[in-house]
Design a protein around this nucleic acid. Structure first.
Lengths: 143, 143
DNA sequence: TCGCAATTGCGATCGACTTGCAATTAGACT
DNA sequence: AGTCTAATTGCAAGTCGATCGCAATTGCGA
């Protein structure tokens, strides 16, 4: 499972603003909390809790990811059967059943598809927790 | 997490044909294999391995589900963080982030949405392993 | 600088599978 | 019908990702 591509332009509260959100909720900006956020902001790719922990205690990392998720600063996506991947609240995801590659998609690119889904079944879809799964053009053409 | 709705018309090889597929591959139709298939055919709703095992050994059930999955007779979907749900290869799924309900959708109903996705990102999407996640009309209207 | 609730670190625990292996058995071949 | 043998089972133990209990620590407001 590899990340195929280019990294598209982003748009999310910067690190300082995120820390401010924590403080405003009466939550502490502890060293480990700051490290979790810094890891996510450093390289804005989705990563596992294990990778974020990077040798330190994962339990705390999971707890911090949970609270950050409740604040809407962080999300996680399941791309397959492995561990969930945590990232800033920026993209939707698509992954290929054939080659295992996945891509982060800017939400506006899926707006027409979202409209078609709404028309078909009435749901307002979001591919943030589970990706769109399918065959990429290459795998579809070379079965 | 409840199953909201009506059960739509189906189309999948009947039990006898499925057993025939097994035999043709040189695989045995053992008692427990037959029980797994019967459970799936009896009430064609997705169910957990635990439910299929129904008190008997789950390891065998998982092994049998795996082999049936390799033969294309069975699939499993992840609707959330719980255990996967196994079912015949018939529907796609949609689940509501708000109320937790999920629906089995006849594939043809999603064909336009699939086309829109293909146009947007080039993927031929299938919502069989991960559902479309979003807000149902009710939850979207009552936030 | 104190006080103390929020947070951490560690180990234990959980849930969902998965695996190793000896005992069982479906089904082909007499 | 009986034999042979590889496929399959049942059970226990193991793995992996995530969560929990709890004593020790630490942000941070007073």
């Amino acid at each position: 499972m590899t990340l195929a591509h280019h990294v598209p332009p982003l748009h999310a509260p910067d690190l300082e603003t995120a820390l401010e959100v924590l403080r405003k909720k009466g939550l502490r900006v502890s060293a480990s909390r700051r490290l979790v956020l810094e890891a996510l902001y450093a390289d804005r790719r989705p990563r596992t809790a294990e990778q974020i922990a990077n040798g330190t205690d994962v339990a705390s990392v999971y707890r911090n990811l949970d609270t950050l998720e409740e604040l809407g600063l962080v999300r996680h996506v399941h791309l397959g059967h492995g561990p969930g991947l945590y990232s800033l609240d920026e993209y939707e995801f698509v992954s290929c059943d054939g080659c295992g590659a996945y891509e982060a998609i800017e939400p506006h690119r899926l707006d027409e598809a979202r409209a078609a889904i709404q028309k078909a079944i009435g749901y307002h879809a979001r591919f943030t927790h589970f990706p769109i799964v399918g065959l990429c053009e290459y795998c579809h053409a070379h079965p």
